[in-house]
Design a protein around this nucleic acid. Structure first.
Length: 296
DNA sequence: AACAACTCCAACCGCTATTCG
DNA sequence: CCGAATAGCGGTTGGAGTTGT
């Protein structure tokens, strides 16, 4: 095992944080074909990842039912009790905490309990939201909407952040608002300012029952109309609700790869991802999501 | 504001267990 | 039973984000 990556002529197997498009492809494939046989699955889905990586990503983050957010005091107590009885049997402990993964519990134990830091209820420090991998990081405003602004941070040099307004299944779209890195913390924390951020561009993630899902861009800066990309004008106009002016829907080179990947899945798969990342049921505010580190 | 130190966690690695031909 | 492939588990780490100075 593990020798699949170095054949001459084949691209090296990707490592590191998962991107949004990879997540969508994985969720889409599993929703259609089921899980298992991970190496084959990775190949069949067209993911340049090894099977272990796909399995881990699915089980720990994409699989339905995975809970996010801080460990509750009750869960903390269970973890302590079970660890005393079972030791580092993280997977066994995880079976007693529905929705929690062994990895999460392991991390929690090592960072909060083993290091003798206080349990969550007693912690006065800033509460970190769920954090997705670097390039696909949802800056959840959860842990209660109250912490949404305190969790904001735009200072990364990695690239721009994207706000996500509440996904709207009726309109078959989710809207991502771009905030430039240069935008201050305070500005980014105010979701109301998102559409008119310095960057000025919005990326729409849309799902169409007939055509699958893809992105389109509303570029305030460009202010030029471009050719059809497969979406009806009415659909696009309907989605352009945040600013006046002309809109363009160019697909940057970076976004082309996203669109290509996204087009591989159907609308249901797209919404599975949206549901998993943003949790329509308990959505309380805007969340930020890095679509691509290098989108400019 | 800038920097350093610290915290946290996603994802990796290596190993073992299980399955299958 | 054997060996290869696959799945699962636990330890570790890189680096992004946060906090303190």
């Amino acid at each position: 095992m593990g020798k699949v990556c170095d054949h001459a002529g084949e691209p090296a197997v990707r490592k590191g944080p998962w991107t949004l498009e990879e997540d969508i492809v994985l969720v889409g494939y599993i929703s259609q074909h089921g899980e298992g046989s991970w190496d084959n699955l990775a190949r069949a889905a067209g993911l340049n990842r090894n099977g272990k990586s796909c399995r881990l990503r699915w089980l720990n983050y994409l699989r339905p039912g995975v809970r996010r957010g801080s460990i509750t005091p009750a869960e903390d107590a269970v973890i302590r009790e079970l660890h005393a009885a079972l030791g580092n049997k993280w997977s066994k402990i995880a079976t007693h905490l529905p929705g929690r993964t062994d990895n999460e519990i392991k991390n929690y134990w090592r960072t909060r309990i083993q290091r003798k830091t206080p349990p969550p209820a007693a912690k006065a420090r800033h509460q970190r939201p769920y954090r997705a991998p670097a390039t696909t990081r949802a800056m959840a405003a959860s842990e209660g909407a109250s912490s949404s602004s305190s969790s904001s941070h735009d200072g990364s040099a990695a690239g721009d952040y994207y706000w996500c307004a509440k996904p709207n299944r009726d309109q078959q779209q989710a809207c991502f608002y771009q905030d430039a890195v240069a935008v201050s913390d305070g500005a980014s924390a105010a979701s109301e300012s998102q559409a008119n951020s310095a960057a000025g561009d919005c990326w729409y993630m849309e799902a169409n029952p007939d055509q699958g899902a893809r992105y389109s861009q509303k570029s305030v800066a460009a202010k030029k109309a471009v050719g059809l990309d497969g979406w009806s004008a009415s659909t696009r106009q309907d989605s352009s609700t945040t600013a006046a002016g002309d809109y363009s829907y160019p697909y940057c080179s970076e976004l082309d790869s996203v669109a290509d990947a996204v087009k591989m899945v159907d609308a249901d798969s797209f919404w599975n991802v949206v549901d998993n990342f943003w949790g329509l049921g308990d959505f309380t505010g805007s969340r930020r999501y890095i679509l691509n580190e290098n989108v400019s």
